[in-house]
Nucleic acid binder design. Structure first.
Length: 581
RNA sequence: UGCCCAAUGGUGUAAUUGGCAACACGACUGACUCUGGAUCAGUAAAGUCCAGGUUCGAACCCUGGUUGGGCAACCA
């Protein structure tokens, strides 16, 4: 018997506006009660966290309502696209945990789109314009001023037909002529002012080679592709709102020409727009990310500071952490700027539940337990994850000489400092309680060794260990540890809103590159070439996740080898002590 | 001098569709802790952009404004 109160709580969670719309469409029997979505990336770059938001929606809606989500590459511009991107996109979607139904390409529809264009020309709804792009732009008017008709607008149909064929045969140079839909040059919607629907591109296409020279534009490909595939809900971001009337018009024309219904029936895809992701301290524009990579400001698309899916993966972010984040921010029609702290909290929440706890010293100083027998080694038990009893434990070696963090010793400590300071007792995690007796400094006054004495009765697990001490610090054995490189990553940009700041700096006359250099956080990467980690990590493989106790979450980098371990900091632990300072 | 869209604590998202403005992140207390993490308990923080209107009742509907975003690529 379930408690009715409990049931109420579980069904409480509200639908986002898109889910509500889908349910309404379903209730009204639209598209025969079917739900089909698509994720339509252009293969011209790597996917970033903004795409992850779209992916979660496209695949999530299909999953929730028993439909399918297909992957469709919107590959209508061969000058920017290639197969490297196609493969990377597929890898990233799968890593996020989704599997598409079919793999489609807009380029597969070039023949149907061509036929559609021919049909429009024959009906006097499209014409070849031979003006330059400047002339066309000038005639288009502005948002506040109507456009004027092209002198070619009413040329004979036969002429347009002939020239359209020539456009596609390689006889017409790029930019010499275009095919335009004849709609309304005075429309308040700029996209209705006789939009260009085909242009000449001589760059070979990554899939169709040199078969075509005339390529459809986005507006002439997207809605039609959706229609060919049977998409019911075409979800995209808010900047496409103004394209929706064009989308609908072309689908209407297509249906009519093919004799497959009219604008009034329900057998058609519908576009719905949601807010795209904006995150503070993050820059998502593909163009800008490309500059970062090409100019060597980062190590590549998968640099752990990049907001790309592959960058986040290498940084140590997890698919489930990303899902938690996407769930938290939601889908609306408000252009929000999300706080990156929400992203980090989602990642911490996920990693806290799953990451194995280990000891690692990232800023080492030697700790000598003076009264511990020289040469003696003890195997201590270390719990793998206090949040998960089934995670078990592993062994960690204890010895007379240990590595500890420099920050965990202070000669003159403030009152609330619960770590190593002369005369103070501290617990060495999983081992003994020790009392700090002093330190040794070099000629510069820097601490080079810390001294302590242990209480043999206080070994973890023994009755004497129950004594209360305020602080616990981590350590690794000098004789039984592994040297490792640790890369401490932080935010790439020092400004909260890099997009606006970039525009501002460029407005001052700075080049894009200079503006970027000025905005970059000099501490975005701090290399710690010599750190010490416990031996347990010898077997760690790339993308394994760990919590370095008291420091943060780390993953093994792809550069890591058994002889030279490399760890990336995913995100630091919350540090209320640092805040108190 | 256009068209379209939006506006709810610091941030984001809700509000049974016209009925006590709630949740998360963040912040701050305190408890607990062999991680200054986690966990637990609690506090502060919006009266819903503004002005009118409809209504017994408005965050929600209407009118007018304000502010912000989008639209003038042979990009998607």
């Amino acid at each position: 018997m379930t408690n009715p109160e409990e049931e109420k709580v579980t069904e409480k969670k509200s639908l986002n506006f898109i889910e509500a719309k889908v349910e309404e469409d379903l209730a009204n029997g639209k598209n025969g009660g079917r739900v089909q979505t698509r994720f339509p990336p252009e293969p011209n770059g790597y996917l970033h966290i903004g795409h992850a938001k779209a992916i979660c929606l496209d695949f999530g809606i299909a999953e929730k309502y028993g439909g399918v989500c297909n992957l469709r590459f919107d590959d209508t511009n061969p000058t920017k696209e290639n197969m490297e991107y196609v493969d990377a996109i597929k890898e990233d979607i799968q890593w996020l945990g989704y599997q598409w139904g079919n793999e489609y390409y807009a380029s597969d529809y070039f023949p149907q789109l061509w036929d559609f264009a021919i049909a429009l020309i024959k009906r006097g709804k499209a014409y070849i314009d031979e003006q330059s792009s400047d002339e066309i732009a000038a005639q288009k008017g502005t948002p506040t001023q109507p456009g004027v008709d092209s002198p070619f607008r009413n040329r004979p149909i036969e002429e347009s037909l002939d020239l359209f064929n020539k456009m596609n045969s390689g006889q017409i140079g790029e930019g010499k002529m275009v095919l335009r839909a004849k709609i309304d040059m005075a429309s308040p919607n700029m996209h209705f002012r006789d939009p260009i629907i085909y242009r000449v591109v001589d760059t070979p296409h990554h899939r169709t080679g040199t078969t075509w020279h005339a390529y459809p534009m986005y507006d002439f490909a997207h809605g039609q592709s959706d229609y060919f595939e049977g998409v019911t809900h075409s979800l995209c971001t808010l900047e496409f709102v103004v394209h929706r009337p064009v989308y609908d018009l072309f689908v209407d024309w297509l249906k009519e020409i093919r004799g497959e219904g009219d604008s009034m029936d329900d057998n058609r895809p519908r576009q719905t727009e949601f807010n795209k992701l904006n995150l503070n301290y993050i820059l998502l524009s593909k163009r800008n990310l490309l500059v970062l990579v090409n100019e060597g400001l980062v190590s590549g698309w998968d640099d752990p500071r990049m907001p790309t899916i592959c960058g986040f993966r290498r940084r140590g972010y997890t698919p489930s952490g990303i899902h938690k984040f996407i769930d938290k921010i939601g889908y609306t029609t408000y252009d929000a700027l999300n706080d990156f702290a929400l992203m980090e909290s989602a990642i911490r929440e996920d990693l806290n539940a799953t990451a194995t706890r280990v000891a690692a010293v990232v800023n080492p100083v030697k700790l000598i337990v003076a009264n511990y027998p020289e040469g003696q080694i003890e195997e201590m038990e270390a719990i793998n994850n206090p949040e998960d009893e089934t995670a078990g434990s592993h062994k960690i070696a204890f010895s007379r000489e240990l590595w500890m963090e420099k920050e965990d010793f202070m000669e003159d400590a403030p009152k609330k400092y619960f770590r190593m300071t002369p005369g103070n007792e501290v617990r060495l995690k999983n081992a003994y309680i020790v009392k700090c007796t002093g330190c040794k400094k070099d000629e510069n006054g820097d601490v080079v060794e810390v001294y302590a004495e242990y209480d043999p009765e206080t070994k973890s697990g023994m009755p004497g260990a129950n004594r209360k001490v305020k602080g616990t610090i981590h350590w690794v054995s000098c004789v039984r540890c592994i040297e490792a490189e640790v890369r401490m990553y932080d935010r790439l940009w020092k400004v909260e809103n890099p997009r606006d700041e970039l525009a501002r700096l460029q407005g001052e006359g700075k080049t894009l590159l200079d503006a970027m250099k000025e905005m970059m956080n000099p501490d975005s990467l701090e290399l710690r070439p010599v750190c010490y980690v416990e031996e347990y990590l010898a077997a760690a493989k790339p993308l394994d996740h760990f919590q370095f106790q008291r420091i943060g979450y780390f993953t093994v980098d792809k550069d890591s080898t058994p002889d030279h371990l490399v760890f990336n900091r995913t995100v630091a632990l919350k540090d209320t002590w640092a805040k108190a300072l």
